[in-house]
Every structure is written in C-alpha cells, then in structure tokens.
C-alpha cells in the first residue's frame, strides 16, 4: 500500500505546512497591505476596542443572539465541535504521541467525541438545507459555499464511520475508510488558506479593524 504510506506521511506534512504557511501568508498580506492602504486602522489603533469586540463575538455576548437565536446558537455549537473534536479526540492524540514530536495531552472521552461528531453533522446538514431551501440564503450562496460545507463535514463523517465501523460490511469501505478519512482531513486543511475558511484567523483581523473603526466613534461593537 504505497499510496496509503504517502497519505499517512508526506501528504499529511504537506497539508499541515500548506495550512500553516498559507495562513501566515494570508495574515501577513493583510497586515502588509493594510499599513499602506488602510492607514486609518493604525491611526486610531486601540487595543481596548480590538479586544472588546473580539471577546464579545467569540463569546455569545453580541446582538445577533437575540435577533437570530436558533441560527447563531447552532453556529456556535458547530464551531465548538469543529475545533474540539479533532484536537482532543483520543485517537488523534495517540498519533501525536507516536509522531516525531511525541506531544501528548489529555483526551476527551470517546463517547463525547462521538456525540459531538453527530451533533456537528446534524448542524452541517441543517446549514446545507438552509442554503438550499431558504430563498434568502440561496440567492447569496455561491458554489463554494455548498462545496465547503461538504468539505468540512466529510472528515467528521468518515471519522465517525471509521471509529464505529458503520460501513464495514462493504468491503471497499472496510479496507479504505481510514485512507478516505485522512484524505478528507488533508483536503480541508489544504483548502483553508485559499477559501473563505480562512475566516478562522481573519475573523480576528476583520473584527479588529471594524472594532477600531467604531471605537474611534466612541463605542465598542
């Protein structure tokens, strides 16, 4: 299984490197260009407004909660699962322990990981249906919006199949599900810097920029 070894080794490295270096490039491009073209941010720079706006929106303290409670709360849960499960899932931590880094940290219970995965997938399906059936969202959606929901959900779906052996009765899947799981995860990592998924890091810069913009008018958003 040469391909398996490639996916498990070099491709994983590539995916992580693209993810990390790509993110760094996105951020430094923003910082570099903004010092030239968006001087206003730096003229009125203020840590106070920068942090207050980021905290308000990282924690559910903002005005969107009362306005669109269902969607916003689901979006929060979606993002929590998306971050927590891949990092604290025991199976992943074992891989880190076995890697050349030999990093290790406390794992979450497998059962919790299972549940969070299911919740995550449920919300992903809801988002997808919402995009398809709500006239509003359909109009503003582009191909990549649909595509990226699927890309983000795939690692979770395949991960669930892998750990629970759901599809093991089908020989193709029982042989290859681990490979598919790794591939889907790597694909997602690689796509992050090039798509709107980059909002995982640009969020902080976008909020910061707008927080400062409104901060200079005397209040925090």
């Amino acid at each position: 299984m040469d391909f398996f070894l490639f996916v498990e080794g070099p491709l994983l490295w590539i995916a992580f490197l693209v993810f990390i270096i790509g993110s760094i490039i996105r951020v430094s491009m923003f910082v570099f260009v903004s010092t030239k073209k968006d001087k206003i941010i730096y003229q009125h720079f203020s840590w106070k407004y920068l942090f207050s706006t980021i905290i308000r929106w990282l924690l559910p303290l903002n005005k969107d909660i009362p306005k669109n409670p269902i969607f916003t709360i689901l979006a929060y849960i979606f993002h929590i699962c998306l971050i927590v499960v891949p990092i604290w899932y025991a199976g992943h931590i074992t891989l880190w322990e076995e890697s050349r880094f030999e990093w290790s940290w406390t794992a979450m219970p497998d059962e919790l990981a299972d549940w969070m995965t299911l919740i995550f997938l449920g919300i992903a399906i809801f988002f997808l249906l919402r995009r398809i059936f709500s006239a509003d969202i359909r109009l503003i959606s582009t191909f990549s919006d649909y595509f990226l929901i699927i890309i983000t959900a795939l690692p979770f779906l395949t991960g669930y199949f892998l750990t629970n052996g759901t599809l093991d009765s089908i020989t193709f899947f029982s042989d290859n599900i681990q490979l598919i799981h790794m591939l889907s995860g790597e694909l997602m990592l690689i796509l992050i810097p090039f798509t709107k998924l980059s909002h995982y890091i640009l969020f902080f810069f976008s909020r910061g920029a707008s927080g400062i913009e409104f901060g200079r008018r005397g209040y925090s958003i």
């Binding site: 491009m29 923003f30 910082v31 570099f32 260009v33 903004s34 073209k37 968006d38 941010i41 969107d64 306005k67 669109n68 969607f71 916003t72 979006a75 709500s134 509003d136 969202i137 503003i140 959606s141 582009t142 919006d145 709107k196 980059s198 909002h199 640009l202 969020f203 810069f205 976008s206 920029a209």
Partner: peptide, 20 residues
C-alpha cells in the same frame, strides 16, 4: 481596494445574518 476590502470579499460567509 484596500486589505480590508479584499479580506471582506474573501471571508463573507454568506450566512445571511445581515439580511434582517
């Protein structure tokens, strides 16, 4: 078209929260 504009066009999640 500054850095903010480029970023915003890139990361708008088309979530529709701004609609109403």
């Amino acid at each position: 078209v500054g850095a903010r504009f480029k970023m915003w066009l890139g990361i708008c999640a088309h979530c529709g929260l701004c609609a109403n």
